[in-house]
Amino acid sequence: MLAKRIIPCLDVDDGRVKKGVNFVNLTDVGDPTEIAAEYQKQGADELVFLDITATNEHRKTMADIVESVSSQVFMPLTIGGGVHDVTDIQRLLKAGADKVAINSAAVSDPELITKGAEKFGNQCIVVAIDVKKTAGKYLVHTHGGKNATDIDAIEWAKEVVKRGAGELLITSMDKDGTKDGFDIELYQAINEVVNVPIIASGGAGKVEDFTEVFEEADVDGALAASVFHFGELSIDDVKQAVRKAGVVVR
């Protein structure tokens, strides 16, 4: 049986991890490789790096970061943010990424999903979807959540899987930052219509939230940022709690 994955997410801006990560034993709190190595030691099952850099020039540094992290850290790495075309995907995979997450570009150019999947295999194409509930409907948002679309998120999930997405990373904008628990209904609805792994993101605040999203929505992984970075929860706390509830973790 596959273990449910616990996934820390790191925002990278111009080569540095942006949100202050406060592990006491780090010599350089912004160094992606050092932080990744620490998370590996703590038992993270996978790492997601999101490039939040605004300029293309700085974006090239992301490949260098992936190159460096994958030389020291030996677990699956997913890289997202600013992936616009097949060349971006190829550059990141070549640098050592295992999966590449496409978000806004998937909406503006859905063909990119198909092209990426055909060239590199479905398993390395993750489509990231930012979702906000508006008038009772789950709607897709792009550009870091800034732009609303009228695309139904459940329909969009179906569509991207049909086009070749091998995994979905679904962020609930309503829950993000609330520490109020994951959006169980959203993940239940999406899990009902697709047959690829789903990573839940947004809302993690306490260990019970992880147990709930695994048990109630049967997602494959749960992602969190600040609760791990600021040491409010450790990966081990989360794993012990969900294991106690009968969920298989590594």
């Binding site: 049986m1 596959l2 273990a3 994955r5 099952d45 479905n122 398993q123 091998g166 995994e167 047959n195 690829v196 792994p197 494959d220 992984g221 298989v248 590594r250």
Partner: peptide, 11 residues
Amino acid sequence: GLKIPQMGWNQ
């Protein structure tokens, strides 16, 4: 009834 590919950590 399981997802294919098998993608993740198994024991």
